[in-house]
Simulated scan of single mutants.
Amino acid sequence: MTDNSHTQNLAELTDELLNKARSANSGRAAHGVYSGQYLKQALLTLTAGTTMAEHDSPPEATLQVLKGSVALSAAEETWELRSGDLMTIPPQRHSVTAHEDVAFLLTIRTDVS
Rank of each mutant, 00 (worst) to 15 (best):
E16V: 11
T14Q: 00
A75C: 03
R93V: 01
S35E: 11
L46Y: 02
T107V: 11
V112S: 07
G84D: 13
T7W: 14
D56G: 08
S5H: 06
R109G: 04
H6V: 03
P91W: 00
L46V: 03
H31C: 12
L72P: 04
V112Y: 07
K40D: 06
N4W: 15
T47N: 07
F104K: 02
P91N: 00
F104M: 01
T62I: 08
M52D: 10
F104T: 01
L66H: 09
N4S: 14
R82K: 14
T88S: 06
E54R: 01
T51V: 04
G68P: 04
N9W: 08
L39F: 06
Q92M: 15
A30V: 12
A48E: 06
H31T: 15
D56F: 06
T7Y: 09
Y34P: 00
H6C: 05
V102L: 11
L44C: 08
E76L: 07
S35D: 14
L18F: 14
D85Q: 08
T51H: 03
A11K: 13
H6Y: 05
M87I: 14
V102P: 12
L86G: 11
R22D: 09
K67R: 14
Q41K: 04
E76I: 06
L13Y: 01
T78G: 09
T51R: 03
T110C: 00
L63D: 07
A74S: 06
R93G: 02
T107E: 10
A98P: 08
R82M: 15
E12W: 10
R109T: 05
E54W: 00
S73P: 09
S26D: 11
T110F: 00
Q41C: 04
T2R: 14
Q41P: 04
M1S: 13
P90G: 01
S113P: 07
T45E: 02
K67V: 11
Q37F: 09
T14P: 02
